[in-house]
Design a protein around this nucleic acid. Sequence first.
DNA 1: AAACTAAAACTTGTCTTACATGTTGTCAAG
DNA 2: CTTGACAACATGTAAGACAAGTTTTAGTTT
Lengths: 246, 246
Amino acid sequence: MQAPLSALSPIEQQKSASERVGEQIRELIASGNLAPGEKLPSENELSRALQVSRPVVREALRGLSMLGLVESRQGGGCYVTDLHVDRLMEPLSFFLRLNEHSLDDLFEARAMIDCGLAKAAAARATEDQKARLLEMAKIGFDLVDDPVGFRVMDAQFHSLISEAAGNAFLNSVAQSFYSLAMDARRRASAMPGVLEQSAKDHDAIVKAIVAGDGRAAAAAMGQHVDNIRLTTLAARNLSEDLADAP
Amino acid sequence: MQAPLSALSPIEQQKSASERVGEQIRELIASGNLAPGEKLPSENELSRALQVSRPVVREALRGLSMLGLVESRQGGGCYVTDLHVDRLMEPLSFFLRLNEHSLDDLFEARAMIDCGLAKAAAARATEDQKARLLEMAKIGFDLVDDPVGFRVMDAQFHSLISEAAGNAFLNSVAQSFYSLAMDARRRASAMPGVLEQSAKDHDAIVKAIVAGDGRAAAAAMGQHVDNIRLTTLAARNLSEDLADAP
DNA sequence: AAACTAAAACTTGTCTTACATGTTGTCAAG
DNA sequence: CTTGACAACATGTAAGACAAGTTTTAGTTT
């Protein structure tokens, strides 16, 4: 009779030296012994102190650097980053890009997230942010004949609302979704009337946020996302028809 | 008069070679050109192909390894991991304990996403999914004295609701947030009365979903997330107090 | 012929050395 | 006090060497 292999656990594989070094430094940061902005000892000092070679220390630091925990400047030393959530959030964006999803799902998700963001922004936006939003909404009407310029403004507009909502997690998700939808969006912004509608939508959203009316802001954002969805899908079908019968 | 330094943007600092290499490989993984479980070329081949030295390749691979994207086995080569959520979120969850603010943000985000998921699940859940949800809600009451078993069931419960909602994007986001909160959650599930409350919450959520009542499902889920938030923060503060005055 | 074994080839892990490139601090000249 | 050059230092990159582990191959044995 064969023993049940599922019951066996793999041999405790000892981690490599660079991983152990990385964990030690990470622990120093997590425990607060290394504060944000603080300078780490030089690679030579670390290698002497930990009794490993410099490449080992370098690999560990490079790993922490990719995690967004430290930043190395050539000739200037290695520093702990500000440890803001946004900086550490990159794995989430990567994961969202990983699996392919349908456009319908994307718009449903955006509707949910962006409505929540608008609602939160209405409650928390600072006076400065409100002023910038008003400015952007006004500029939008001047850019209806400039698709490229409008898209740049549009990205800043949504980014500013995310920022005003003050939630790093939702902000990260919203940015990822926005950039995912951008590809499909590019074709739609060339269609007549689309940018005019978006400018009006932006105006309504900003008015609600400035007024501090969360429900109205969420409703206006929901309408906006739905308008975008319709025109984006229409543009996609149009280009597909062109591809089928050129 | 001093010039406004805020108007200046830092010089475009070119990234180091190892970072560029790491990004290239990461793109290969994100785009699917390197599938999960697939073996990467050897370090020597990579260094020749990319025309950089082997240490550069090694540092890049070590960084990706810390991000959970690849795994190196001495003598055996370097392989793309399974890219499961938990693996990719692990480096993030480790730093959630840094500041309480991020935990608050995380729960706010979860409330938003999970409420939307519950609402969608109420509208779209199949009969089979409803039956499994009812089963889980019932089992939950039997597991109130088994924290480990309850957590396993809880993960399946939330995963099933995400699945029933039928939106791949929101599913990804919800899973990420769930695994992020797991670390902090573990301590809370040992507190008396917590699991009983969760079992009751689950029951209410399931009843609403089975009844097809989206509003009630969202409300019940909102209440559930809020309960979790309170107990998690309480458990966190408790362990902090113990650390301060042992 | 099939299966086991041992050697060879290959791959990652670590160390050492060297030099290039950039930053920081010192110090003297203006 | 500011400016500029210089020296000391830190990180970035390259190359070579050996250790330790795995995979493949070839050979031998049954």
